[in-house]
Design a protein around this nucleic acid. Structure first.
Lengths: 224, 224
DNA sequence: CGATCACTTGAGTTTAGTCAAAGCGGGTGG
DNA sequence: CCACCCGCTTTGACTAAACTCAAGTGATCG
């Protein structure tokens, strides 16, 4: 990780919702940090120091289980907030890790300054609240899927979500990460991807995946 | 559901965090509603009209899957907020249902008034944000458990959480609900409960469950 | 007294997780 | 240049957890 220049005011959450009186303070308190591919931005269990806004790059947010296993909770895109799970009422420890999937630039703010911003700026707090509400809904939808859908359905859901995130039918992801995102194992993902390829719903060349038939893919998500 | 009297100012979230100028308005805009056991408070998929605060009773918050299957997302206790998932940025539809587990009184507020309160009262918004952050953490922890823990571990976790919610080692819950909470089926829960009983970690008389050995129960939650 | 409903138990099936091994570049250093 | 090693992919075989189905049991209620 190394430091870099400053952030244009309209990319991140914090800046977009800054009230005029506060813009100067925001400029003073934020800094740009640069992370290389595969570098850890923060680690589950370590104390929360600050909040990150993703300025450029891709980041996975994941929870560990034992040494080997993980669950990817979310992929963050440009403009997204990172580290906000630390704002709860419990211990100030990260409950997830964040790892750069490509070279990534973030806009970083000390926790204390961010909390001060929230107090001073109700519309920021409101916006953040809304963001949480959305994340919570999504998390609960995923929980239901994990319980009631089979792996193939979850994989279809994961692929469609990735496509939505990238705003394209084509994107890149390792099978390992796909497995951790769909909540299953490498081999199972491998076999199910093969099936989707055989059905001509997708193509895959290494990590590059293209969705060919979104509609049929979506059928796997229905269930009862 | 029928209407009832008014709410003492200190039970719910909304009232506790009311700023002085707003208390009169809060009094005008809230009302008490009474729900009988098993009555639906709101239904997944229907439009969000307002926010509820649980004044007395127990409520399950659940997501449906097909006709038969459900997942219980959370049990609400006195003072808890209900319906807050509707505050996200998407459609204003409930993404979960809420059903009274016993006779229940709630303090109800129109959505528009609640949103106005949030704008006027930053500490309410902040408090709610923190609440969401906690819920999100918990939801993500549960997701990880669903993926990586076996049923016995999830049941142990569910039992301990219920005990924590009731602030007692003794509580009452149907096996059906226990299954929906742990993300599994009736029969599987039944068999695993038998095992816990055989190991003298709990007792169960019908729906009444008592935890005998919290420490050993907790061991089932560890995993890797 | 029959019907209904939840509880209890057994048996069979299935999905997906585990383990193991072979294949396949691609890069590195001898 | 070749041999080797590493990491990822591919595939097969086995295993086990837990879901499903089905049927028996017992209690309750009209």
């Amino acid at each position: 990780m190394k430091k870099a220049g400053t952030c244009d005011l309209n990319t991140c959450f914090l800046c977009q919702y800054s009230i005029p009186e506060w813009i100067a303070a925001v400029s003073d308190h934020r800094q740009h940090l640069f992370y290389k591919k595969n570098e850890t931005i923060f680690q589950e269990g370590s104390p929360v120091k600050g909040i990150f806004f993703l300025y450029d790059g891709k980041v996975k947010v994941h929870k560990q289980w034992g040494a080997e296993k993980e669950l990817i909770v979310r992929f963050a895109q440009k403009g997204d907030i990172l580290g906000h799970r630390g704002l709860g009422s419990g211990d100030r420890l990260y409950t997830v890790s964040a790892t750069a999937l490509e070279d990534t630039t973030v806009c970083y703010t000390e926790l204390s300054f961010f909390e001060a911003s929230l107090k001073v700026n109700p519309s920021l707090a409101l916006k953040l609240m809304q963001f949480y509400a959305d994340e919570l809904q999504e998390a609960e939808r995923k929980m239901r899927n994990l319980v009631h859908m089979d792996v193939k359905g979850r994989l279809a859901d994961a692929l469609l979500e990735l496509s939505r995130l990238h705003k394209a039918l084509h994107f890149t992801i390792s099978r390992q990460d796909l497995a951790a995102f769909a909540g299953t194992t490498y081999e199972t993902i491998y076999r199910n991807l093969q099936e989707f390829i055989a059905e001509k719903l997708i193509t895959a060349e290494g990590r590059a995946i293209t969705i060919l038939n979104e509609k049929k893919l979506r059928r796997y998500i229905v269930g009862g």
